[in-house]
């Protein structure tokens, strides 16, 4: 992975950070493999998108999935975008057997 980053980083230094920011505003949440990543950098850097005002670049950056942002924030805490509503009876039922108050025989079947 390190070497992949090096490739895309060294290819077009300087302004490439701007293009990197704009790439992922297309919103794909998946980690692109290195080949795809490199291609995209090349395509985009020739675009007029190089000239993104500084503020906008930062905004795009915030939306980056951490996979292709070399400056992704360093968090170990996991932030879930939307929490389940556990007051919903059906949903609550799905985790009942994860508690000792639930059905032990069903719980023991988990993972078998």
């Amino acid at each position: 992975e390190c070497s992949d980053e090096d490739v895309s980083g060294n290819e077009d230094s300087g302004d490439d950070h701007v293009s990197e920011g704009s790439i992922s505003s297309d919103g794909s949440g998946e980690a692109p493999d290195s080949a795809v990543d490199t291609n995209r950098v090349e395509e985009d850097s020739s675009d007029e998108e190089i000239f993104i005002p500084k503020g906008q670049k930062k905004q795009a950056k915030n939306e980056l999935p951490s996979f292709d942002d070399v400056d992704a924030e360093d968090y170990s805490k996991f932030f879930k975008a939307e929490l389940n509503d556990w007051s919903d009876e059906d949903l609550a039922k799905s985790i009942r057997d994860r508690f000792v108050t639930g059905d032990w025989s069903k719980a023991s079947l988990r993972g078998r």
């Binding site: 390190c2 980053e5 090096d6 980083g9 951490s66 942002d69 070399v70 400056d71 992704a72 924030e73 360093d74």
Partner: peptide, 11 residues
């Protein structure tokens, strides 16, 4: 070892 960017700084 050459690395890029500030990601995973602690690790």
């Amino acid at each position: 070892r050459r690395l890029t960017g500030s990601r995973h700084f602690r690790q």
